[in-house]
Simulated assay, not measured.
Amino acid sequence: MTQINFTLNFDQLKEEVMQSSLNDVIKSSIVVVLNKYMEEERNQFMNNASYERDGERSDYRNGYYDRDLVLNIGRIPLKVPRTRSGEFSTQAFEKYSRSDQAFLLSMVEMVVNGVSTRKVSKVVEQLCGEKVSKSMVSDLTKELDPIIKEWSERPLSTDYYRYVYVDATYIKVREFHKVVSKAVYIALGVNSNDEREIIGFKVSGVESKANWSDFFESLISRGLHAPKLIISDAHEGLKSAVQEKFLGSSWQRCTVHFIKNITDAMPKKDSAEARHHLKEIFKAQSIDISRMLKEEFITKFGDDKKYQKAINVLDEGYEDAVQFYTEPPVTHRHIRSTNVLERINGEVKRRVRVIRIFPNPESAFRLVGAVLKDYDASVDSGGRKYFYR
């Protein structure tokens, strides 16, 4: 039997459908094709063509009946062939109802990509002429649950992650009839092939040593070995959890956050030279040059009381901020800050912004997980390496 396939550029449709309607010629063409398809089905069933005489025929054509078929390109009216015995049945409706599955997946994809359920419902109505409730769209996203669960719980023992970045971002979630802030804990690892992977995430309460410890325990239980370097900001609870859970790992304080901490303690005016000098300390080619630049900074600005607090902050946190120098030079600009994870946090916020408030923690885990899984699949695809040697 002839196979008929239709493909749609759904991304283009969802962009254009809000301002325009589908061309009726498209629907009319599909009506013609599907009617012809069903006619051929009936011919094959009867083993003869229309008006062909056959003394051994066991059935006769008996006209048509009307039936609508709703596809992802809209509702179309069809003329369905029938036979006198009623034994003939077209497979067109069964075959093309499968396209609804692709359509439903597209609806889920739209939600994951940051389209609100209200807009998805409107797109569906424009495409199909049928209303879809927001609750139906939300229910559809639950199909993601087993996929996200499997991905988020995959073993980590099959590879070694030399560098692990950790950070948290915040979202709003409705819980016990009130809106609360929830932290999304994210861990990004660099594996033995110099490729980045999102190795874990968790939606939980505000940052604390207990919550960071629980998050690290979940990674360790999945097989994560202590990395050479853990890169993060200087949240006290996070630092304590790292020291407790990853014995033997070094902690790299994010230099971007550290420099901001120092400059916040500087005078606002007439400090451009000091700020420039400070940045050069952490861009130096080696640890020896970095230490020299640090001492020059203290010597140059140490007698000025306006810089005393900044110098104290620099002196106290310097060693934790230069751990990256123990690693190969090609990695330095990548592992001295959490910039790579900040970009992921920004992507999560961009994609969930339309939701504003998640109806429950489960929906937050589902959608954030889908966004992270989608990001993870493309971050270092095609054999691309994070470090260029």
Rank of each mutant, 00 (worst) to 15 (best):
G55N: 08
N35D: 15
A265Y: 03
S135N: 12
D380H: 08
D374W: 02
D264Q: 12
E87G: 05
M1P: 06
V124M: 07
K228L: 12
E130Q: 15
Q308L: 13
Q101H: 12
V371G: 08
T141Q: 08
N211G: 00
E175P: 06
R67G: 03
E175M: 04
D303E: 15
V111F: 12
G205C: 07
A49N: 14
P359H: 02
F282Q: 06
D24P: 11
E87T: 04
E280S: 08
E362R: 13
F282M: 08
K305I: 04
K172I: 02
K131T: 14
Q252Y: 05
Q252G: 05
I259A: 08
R253L: 14
E197R: 14
S28Q: 15
G129T: 02
F93L: 06
N261D: 13
N5Y: 06
A168D: 03
D376M: 07
P77R: 14
W212V: 07
V379S: 03
D320W: 01
R353H: 11
G205Y: 12
S99Q: 13
D374F: 01
I220E: 11
F6R: 02
H334R: 11
L71M: 13
P329M: 03
L78N: 10
K283G: 11
G200K: 10
A92M: 14
K119F: 01
R222E: 07
V352K: 02
H277Q: 15
M1I: 02
W212G: 08
Y165H: 08
N72T: 04
H177Y: 14
V164A: 00
S20I: 13
Q252C: 06
F297I: 04
D54A: 03
D233E: 10
T7V: 06
R253E: 11
N360H: 10
L34D: 04
H257W: 02
Y60M: 01
N62L: 01
T90W: 02
S221K: 15
T255Q: 15
D374M: 10
D100R: 11
E347L: 12
Q19F: 13
E39Q: 11
K260N: 14
S89I: 06
A234D: 15
T7E: 14
L238N: 06
L314W: 03
L22Y: 02
I344S: 07
F324D: 10
E342H: 03
